[in-house]
């Protein structure tokens, strides 16, 4: 087997990116951002509430999916632990520290457990749409009409149940088709959380106009650190502290920064981990100039810079 000659042709080899979704821009060249009350770091905690259906057959591999022969009660119930027990530990810690979280929630889970949505709304936390459920990741081979209908249904459910505008979108496992940004923007989504390529919001172009991508963290996701990479709980805490120390220091010369933390309640909501989470969050909120906010509030402050 040999390679076709066009394998050595590069039609998009020019200045900037090889696609039109966003402009090439180095963080160090951007205007300095100022946060409300002169805060140095905006603390953005995202809590993910997800449903992994027992009969899930995702079109692309999903980490933490059912992995054993049907019926895989092992994986189903361990994921569901987060929605019954883990998240209530996280609520307590965040309430205690005065942190308001954005909650990325599957619409099917919101319908299954409406009490969860009541808890989110009662806290004045933000709802981010996290797709239908973890068995339905969006992907490059997905039919565009099917995807459009899926997105519409997800947003109708979440907007109806929360009474919120629902401005943010996080694709299940952050997986998109080439059309996802266009389709969510057409439904009024103002920011995406999927792209892990920046520390700050940046404009993201769609067929329905310019939206933003927010720096939802992939590196500091508890599932990534504790499950995928199998680090210890202390290493998890160290990474959160090291991240904060760097961003806090950078803010002196580079303007306001964003410390994003992503929590999966079935991971950090475990009894033996919750105090480690509290340790890291207490360290962060113990500094002057830390502004705890939701994704939408951070985006508004960012866009308000002109």
């Amino acid at each position: 087997m040999s390679l076709p000659e066009d394998y050595l042709q590069y039609p998009k080899r020019g200045h900037g990116m090889d696609h039109d979704r966003y402009t090439w821009s180095m963080l160090k060249d951007r205007p300095k951002v100022t946060w409300p009350n002169g805060a140095r770091v905006a603390l953005w905690v995202v809590t993910q509430l997800q449903w992994f259906p027992l009969d899930m057959k995702p079109a692309v591999p999903v980490p933490a999916a059912m992995a054993r022969p049907y019926p895989d009660y092992w994986n189903y119930t361990l994921r569901d632990y987060g929605n019954r027990v883990g998240v209530y530990r996280i609520f307590k810690v965040l309430d205690k520290l005065g942190i308001r979280s954005s909650v990325a929630i599957n619409s099917a889970l919101a319908e299954m457990y409406p009490y969860l949505m009541q808890q989110i709304v009662a806290r004045d936390w933000e709802v981010i749409a996290n797709g239908l459920d973890m068995g339905h990741p969006h992907h490059g081979d997905m039919d565009s009409g099917e995807e459009a209908a899926l997105i519409k249904g997800v947003l109708e459910t979440l907007r109806g149940m929360s009474g919120q505008k629902v401005r943010g979108w996080l694709s299940p496992i952050r997986s998109e088709s080439m059309n996802t940004p266009d389709l969510v923007a057409a439904e009024g989504i103002e920011y995406l959380c999927d792209w892990a390529n920046d520390d700050m919001p940046y404009p993201f172009e769609t067929a329905s106009g310019s939206i933003h991508n927010m720096p939802h963290t992939m590196e500091l996701d508890d599932q990534q650190i504790l499950i995928a990479l199998r680090h210890t709980e202390q290493e998890y805490v160290d990474q959160l502290k090291d991240q904060f120390d760097c961003l806090y220091a950078e803010s002196v010369n580079s303007g306001g920064r964003i410390m994003a933390i992503n929590l999966n309640p079935w991971v950090t909501g475990q009894a033996y981990r919750i105090k480690k989470l509290e340790e890291a969050l207490s360290y962060i909120t113990g500094h002057d100039g830390v502004w705890s906010a939701t994704g939408g509030e951070i985006l508004d402050a960012f866009k308000g810079q002109g």
């Binding site: 490059g140 952050r174 088709s177 080439m178």
Partner: peptide, 17 residues
Amino acid sequence: KPHPDVVPHSHRDYGNR
């Protein structure tokens, strides 16, 4: 994954930005 494989692609793009 089928393109676009957003997570590994954007993670690498972080290096340049």
